[in-house]
Simulated scan of single mutants.
Amino acid sequence: MKPSNIGGQAVMEGIMMRHKDKYSIAVRRPDGEIELKLEDYKCTFGNAKFLKKPIIRGVVSFVDSLVVGTKCLMYSAEIAGDEEDEEEAVQNAKLTEEELSAKKEKEAKQFQWLLYITVAVSMIVSVLAFMFLPYTLASLLRKVGASEFLVTVAEAFVKMALFMGYMLLISRMKDIQRTFMYHGAEHKCINCVEHGLPLTVENVMKSSRQHKRCGTSFLFLVMIVSICLHFIFVLVPFYWVRLFGRLLMVPVVAGVSFEIIQWAGRTDTKFADIMSKPGLAMQKLTTKEPTEDMAEVAIRAVEAVFDWRAYLNEEFDWKDPEENSDNKEETHGDI
């Protein structure tokens, strides 16, 4: 396997794919057609050089993924359920170009505010549920004389139980299962090209739905890294310092986890494979086998941002049969 640096995310009835400074969103509309949107990727924090330093780039990538991912989810939800409101269409038809432009600008600003609020709330809820809550529950053991070390061990078990329970719960929801099928299609597409196969529906369907660089693996790794780093606070004598110290460690945990998963994604050593196994196992919950029409959506998303033919030619010395056929016809015609 050779890394292609493609990343993606499942959205409502579709897939987002990102490569370098572009990302695309392909969504299956209610009428069966595929809606494709191409956007320039712009880092939330700007392009300063220090943002690309190890650990820091992991924090930047994590926040950016939340912002872009939430934006794509909101867009896909709108497209997937987009059956034109006749009343709204009539109202828009009555507006002048200036009024319609002003209305769209207002809606864009509202969307932007909603996006940032959604991301902020998501981050706060995640920190409370998977950082503060496990430690608070584990701290109850002090009432029976448990040491801080035992409390931290108990915190680790509570944290993993909450995480696994959450994953199991959402994996059983019908609407989420379709998104997980698109998640599987996303992985299959990336695995297809990274294993040197032309990007066709047939090749995508027979590719693996598990990938080392998956967000599920990242979240699982965040849990493990946070458990390890939180043992630093065992010797801290003050409860509130230990509690808020965990909050201050969130960027460090995200940065370290990012570096590990990036290393594992571009390395084929046995050690990297062993490190990746728990995360890959978790992907059995968050990815499902897609249908062929889902694979078509994934292919459209990839092709909008990534020249897989040039990649296969460069990395695997693959020759496009159609191009060779055209060249032969041209040569034959010149004779």
Score class of each variant (00 low, 15 high):
residue 3 P to Y: 14
residue 7 G to H: 08
residue 7 G to M: 02
residue 11 V to S: 02
residue 15 I to Q: 01
residue 15 I to E: 00
residue 21 D to G: 05
residue 21 D to V: 04
residue 27 V to G: 02
residue 31 D to E: 13
residue 37 K to T: 13
residue 39 E to T: 05
residue 44 T to S: 14
residue 54 P to M: 06
residue 55 I to V: 07
residue 56 I to Q: 00
residue 56 I to M: 08
residue 58 G to H: 06
residue 60 V to L: 14
residue 61 S to Y: 08
residue 61 S to D: 08
residue 68 V to M: 15
residue 69 G to Y: 06
residue 70 T to K: 12
residue 71 K to N: 06
residue 75 Y to N: 04
residue 77 A to S: 15
residue 90 V to T: 12
residue 92 N to L: 15
residue 93 A to V: 01
residue 96 T to I: 10
residue 102 A to Y: 08
residue 103 K to F: 07
residue 103 K to Y: 03
residue 104 K to D: 04
residue 107 E to V: 11
residue 110 Q to R: 12
residue 112 Q to K: 14
residue 119 V to L: 01
residue 122 S to H: 06
residue 126 S to C: 06
residue 130 F to H: 05
residue 131 M to V: 15
residue 139 S to Y: 11
residue 140 L to E: 06
residue 144 V to P: 08
residue 145 G to I: 03
residue 145 G to C: 06
residue 146 A to N: 01
residue 149 F to Y: 09
residue 153 V to T: 09
residue 153 V to W: 14
residue 156 A to E: 12
residue 158 V to G: 04
residue 159 K to N: 10
residue 160 M to N: 11
residue 160 M to C: 09
residue 161 A to I: 02
residue 165 G to N: 05
residue 168 L to V: 15
residue 168 L to T: 12
residue 175 D to G: 06
residue 181 M to D: 01
residue 181 M to L: 12
residue 184 G to C: 09
residue 186 E to P: 02
residue 188 K to N: 05
residue 189 C to N: 09
residue 191 N to Q: 03
residue 195 H to K: 03
residue 205 M to C: 03
residue 211 H to N: 09
residue 212 K to P: 04
residue 214 C to M: 07
residue 218 F to L: 05
residue 218 F to P: 02
residue 222 V to L: 11
residue 223 M to N: 10
residue 226 S to D: 09
residue 227 I to P: 00
residue 232 I to F: 15
residue 233 F to K: 05
residue 238 F to M: 12
residue 240 W to H: 07
residue 244 F to Y: 11
residue 245 G to M: 13
residue 245 G to S: 07
residue 247 L to H: 03
residue 250 V to N: 10
residue 255 G to F: 04
residue 257 S to V: 13
residue 258 F to H: 07
residue 259 E to G: 07
residue 260 I to H: 02
residue 274 I to Q: 10
residue 279 G to V: 14
residue 280 L to C: 15
residue 281 A to K: 15
residue 282 M to L: 05
residue 285 L to F: 01
residue 290 P to F: 10
residue 292 E to S: 13
residue 293 D to F: 08
residue 294 M to L: 02
residue 296 E to N: 13
residue 296 E to V: 10
residue 297 V to I: 11
residue 300 R to F: 02
residue 300 R to D: 10
residue 305 V to T: 04
residue 305 V to K: 06
residue 307 D to W: 10
residue 309 R to M: 14
residue 313 N to S: 15
residue 314 E to R: 05
residue 316 F to R: 08
residue 316 F to M: 08
residue 318 W to S: 03
residue 319 K to A: 14
residue 323 E to S: 07
residue 323 E to N: 06
residue 324 N to C: 15
residue 326 D to Q: 12
residue 326 D to R: 14
residue 327 N to A: 15
residue 327 N to F: 14
residue 330 E to P: 04
residue 334 D to P: 08
